[in-house]
Design a protein around this nucleic acid. Structure first.
Lengths: 199, 199
DNA sequence: CTCCTCAATGTCAGTGACTGACATCGACGA
DNA sequence: TCGTCGATGTCAGTCACTGACATTGAGGAG
């Protein structure tokens, strides 16, 4: 009685599969091990088993490796804002997005910590992070406008929501934190409400 | 009857004076004329009458030329926050900073428009702008903490204030705008207050 | 007046990110 | 069987940016 095992056979294809994934993995490893600046694209490519040129076919630049795969993030956030109850306030709609994202992040705390460590050590990476967040902010504002919210309230709400996330996220990835992101976002949201409370 | 005119004489010094200023001017011209990416540092240096190496002695990188001279900005904002009345709310203190900055910007509308046009056309420049603003946000948060405001309210207030500025500034530099920045900031501030109003 | 020091610049030779043009090759369909 | 095509390799080039060292005129010490 013979058993036929179907398994992946690299020889099926001309190259190892998932070049993009291998690049991302190799890059994260090297950035973590020796730092972003001390890592050359050639080294990443070598560890991933391909050439420098191919690296740039998969990622626009050396920094982008750490930020690709954020589309899921947006694709989780925006629908939640859109799907919020019709009678929700703009901030409540944004909060719905925030909570949706929080639950998605929760299982990835270790990975988020490692990534954040790399980014925190490099200003260039922080720049990229900020512009990605700004892009998300624009998308949130657009979603709010789709809900009938007018400018400038849409933009201000989106930015405020991002600030809430930023504060909560920083606490969440802190080395000694044990509280879930959802909870921290709740706290941060409450703090935001106190900002304009007395004015 | 002879007239003695005292004027600047370039031969007094080994080099033309104000190398930094000449670089900044040349860079702004070239970035405006043909775009940031289409301008090389060598070209800027040539127009400024010096070498590429000297460019990098005055500015950390090609982008920084557009962002140097923002220290005055911070040095206007922070003291105003610090000097706000002791019984002012955190947001009122930030508003004081915003208004201080507004009056300083007002006379420079044409220059701000040109600069913003250059930045708007280039993602890399937007990245740099965002991180500069983030740095200002950190400084504002620190100033608030100095006023006894605790985290996370300090950070959230600072970020909200920056959002207010961002919205107002965008309207101010818009081609058809005629309203003063101070007024637009006032409007934007009022809109911010409505964000958390109903929640 | 002469010499010394110093700051600002120039010169030069790199390194490394990124790009365009063209070659290669195995999978797959006509 | 062959031609197309997508993913990759190869190669040469541009440009931002850096480190090491040389140069020179101004201004001070003597």
């Amino acid at each position: 009685m013979s058993v036929t095992v179907i398994r992946y056979d690299a020889s099926m294809s001309r190259w190892e599969p998932d070049a993009r994934g291998r690049i991302a993995l190799a890059a994260m490893e090297l950035y973590s091990e020796r730092g972003f600046d001390q890592t050359t694209v050639a080294e990443i490519a070598e560890r991933a088993g391909l050439t420098e040129r191919t690296f740039f076919r998969h990622f626009a630049d050396k920094r982008e490796v750490l930020f690709a795969g954020q589309e899921p993030f947006r694709d989780l956030f925006i629908p939640a804002v859109v799907a919020a109850p019709a009678d929700a306030t703009p901030l409540q709609a944004v909060a719905a997005g925030l909570y949706a994202v929080a639950d998605d992040f929760e299982p990835r705390l270790p990975w988020s910590r490692q990534r954040q460590g790399v980014i925190a050590a490099n200003p260039g990476l922080q720049e990229r992070e900020l512009i990605k967040l700004a892009g998300l902010g624009d998308a949130i504002a657009a979603a709010l406008r789709g809900r009938g919210v007018t400018e400038p309230v849409a933009s201000l709400t989106a930015q405020s929501g991002l600030a809430v996330f930023h504060v909560a996220f920083a606490l969440w990835v802190a080395p000694d934190n044990t509280r879930p992101l959802r909870e921290l976002i709740g706290d941060s949201l409450a703090a935001l409400k106190s900002v304009t409370a007395g004015d």
